[in-house]
Amino acid sequence: MKYTGSCHCGNIAFEVDGEVKGAMACNCSLCQRKGALMWFVPRVELKLLTPESAIHTYTFNKHVIKHHFCATCGIHPYGEGVDPNGNAIAAINIRCIEDIDLESIQVQHYDGRSA
């Protein structure tokens, strides 16, 4: 299934292919504050619809995840990293996907504070 999404102001817009079978809520110092629900997909399934120049990036701790956000509205629509097998992945904030029923998505809680 193809989904569309964006930050609040629309400066970062995207399409992503896949099936949302669940999402992850992390309690690390950043994720807890931004309240994201992350859905992981292969990076090739994410297509940006806006220029990369609209994206700002924040990294912290081990600097392995690129947390992308909009400098205008502050929303974090997705991040990028590498899975344990070395494959490029995108972590899509499903709260930024249009017309998704968040109540129907099973959420797994991850203890990022201890990782």
Rank of each mutant, 00 (worst) to 15 (best):
Ala71Thr: 11
Ser104Val: 00
Leu102Gly: 07
His63Gln: 13
Ala91Asp: 13
Gly79Val: 12
Cys73Leu: 13
Val82His: 04
Cys7Pro: 05
Pro84Lys: 12
His63Asp: 12
Ala13Gly: 14
Asp17Ser: 12
Ile12Ser: 01
Gly81Leu: 10
Ala115Asp: 14
Asn93Gln: 04
His76Lys: 13
Gly86Trp: 12
Ala90Glu: 11
Gly112Val: 06
Ile97His: 00
Cys31Leu: 06
Asn27Val: 07
Ala91Ile: 12
Met38Asn: 12
Thr72Asp: 14
Tyr58Val: 05
Glu98Trp: 00
Asn11Met: 09
Phe69Cys: 09
Ser104Asn: 11
His109Leu: 13
Pro42Ala: 00
Ala25Thr: 08
Pro42Asp: 05
Asn61Phe: 13
Tyr3Pro: 01
Ile94Ala: 02
Arg43His: 07
Ser6Arg: 07
Glu52Asn: 14
Gly81Cys: 11
Tyr110His: 08
Ile105Asn: 04
Phe60Val: 10
Ala88Pro: 12
Glu19Trp: 01
Cys28Glu: 08
Leu46Asp: 07
Gly10Phe: 03
Asn93Thr: 05
Ile65Lys: 01
Tyr58Lys: 08
Val16Lys: 01
Cys31Asp: 07
Thr57Lys: 14
Arg95Phe: 08
Ser104Lys: 14
His67Pro: 08
Val44Trp: 00
Lys47Thr: 13
His56Leu: 07
Arg95Leu: 15
Glu15Gln: 09
Glu98Thr: 01
Ala25Ser: 14
Ile89Met: 15
Ser53His: 00
Ala91Tyr: 08
Ala54Asn: 15
Leu46Ala: 09
Phe14Arg: 00
Asn27Gln: 03
Asn85His: 14
Ile97Pro: 02
His63Leu: 10
Gly5Ile: 04
Val107Asp: 05
His76Tyr: 15
Gln106Ser: 12
Glu15Gly: 01
Leu48Glu: 05
Ala71Asn: 12
Cys73His: 10
Thr72Cys: 11
Cys26Asn: 05
Gly5Lys: 02
Tyr58Trp: 14
Asn11Phe: 02
Ala36Gln: 12
Phe40Ile: 06
Ile100Leu: 15
Ala25Glu: 15
Asn87Met: 07
Glu15Cys: 06
Glu52Cys: 04
Ser114Tyr: 05
Gly22Phe: 10
Ser114Phe: 04
Pro51Tyr: 01
Glu15Thr: 06
Cys26His: 03
Ala36Arg: 03
Thr4Lys: 13
Glu19Phe: 11
Phe69Val: 06
Val41Asn: 01
His63Lys: 15
Asn93His: 02
